[in-house]
Amino acid sequence: MRETGTQQVEASVRLPDRRVPGAVAGLVRACHPEPTAVVTALVTALAAASGLGPARCLLVAGAVLTGQLSVGWCNDRVDHGRDVAAGRTDKPLVDGVLRPHVLSRAAGTALALCVPLSLAVGPLAGLAHLTGVGAAWAYNLGLKRTVLSWLPYAVGFGLLPAFVALGLPGRPWPPGWAVLGGALLGVGAHLTNVLPDIEADLAAGVRGLPQRLGGGPTRVLAALVLGAAAVVLSVGPPGPPGAAGWAALGITGLMAPLTVLPVPGRARSRVPFLATLVLAATAAAALLTRGVGLGPGPGSG
């Protein structure tokens, strides 16, 4: 007798336990390691460039890391049934490396750690960061299925500069270009991240903004949004962009086709999303090379 989708999900839950090393590897895979590592590294580097001391930079790194881990693990846990139905054997919950309750506990533990780490940077800074993390959880828990699917990304990434700046002496609000640039990067990341899954999402009833637009328009919109982010982060800070700023814009121009053109023979290619991470790292590197931070000083705005 053929199993229903629900029975298949239940069968995956009853898989035998695996060895601990396999579970650890599964947790690493389930946390969406590339964006988790890139976001944590970039925000920590921005904190150091803005004048936060080593101890506070470690707090920033810990808060961002645990926040990103909680969001990634929550995402895979919430999407478990849909991933099973779509045959996503690249997911550790689907291939049996992890059990759902393990991932649920990991997400809850990471979120619980994120709260005190965020607040230790400063009350207002912690509130800004936790608001962004909360927006990401709201995306996982339902907003991803609505036309406002882009909003949690804009809020979450736009508030990362605020997290750093509000942890500085005097608790200054970050310059507008930093908030806008972060928000644009977040929206672009959302668009390119969803691209490979649009057809499967529509079949599962997920109708966020990219799914409603379709693959072609989403690629064009992603390129426009990411291009705007690169321009804002290059020309927004005070003073001329300099060689680093123009180099970042040049690299962005070279990366743009990777976010627009589909990869032949690879409908589920992650190249557009990985290109987005490279673009974000390039923009951040240009800022750091120019000595631009978020604190008081000639390069801070």
Rank of each mutant, 00 (worst) to 15 (best):
M1V: 14
T4N: 08
T6V: 13
R18C: 10
R18Y: 09
V20I: 15
V38A: 10
V38P: 02
A41Y: 03
A45L: 15
A55T: 14
R56L: 11
L69C: 05
S70P: 10
C74M: 11
V84N: 04
T89A: 08
V94I: 03
D95F: 00
P100R: 00
H101V: 15
A112Q: 02
A125H: 00
L130S: 03
T131G: 07
A136V: 11
A138E: 09
L151C: 15
G170Q: 08
R171Y: 08
L180Y: 00
G186R: 04
A189T: 12
D197H: 02
I198W: 02
E199D: 14
L202H: 13
L209G: 09
P210T: 01
R212T: 09
P217H: 13
T218I: 06
R219Q: 09
A223F: 12
A230M: 08
V231F: 02
S234K: 04
V235P: 02
V235M: 02
P237E: 01
G239H: 03
P257F: 01
L258A: 10
P264D: 05
R266W: 14
R268I: 07
R270H: 14
R270L: 14
L274W: 15
A275D: 05
T282W: 06
A283H: 12
L288G: 08
V292C: 15
L294I: 09
L294W: 00
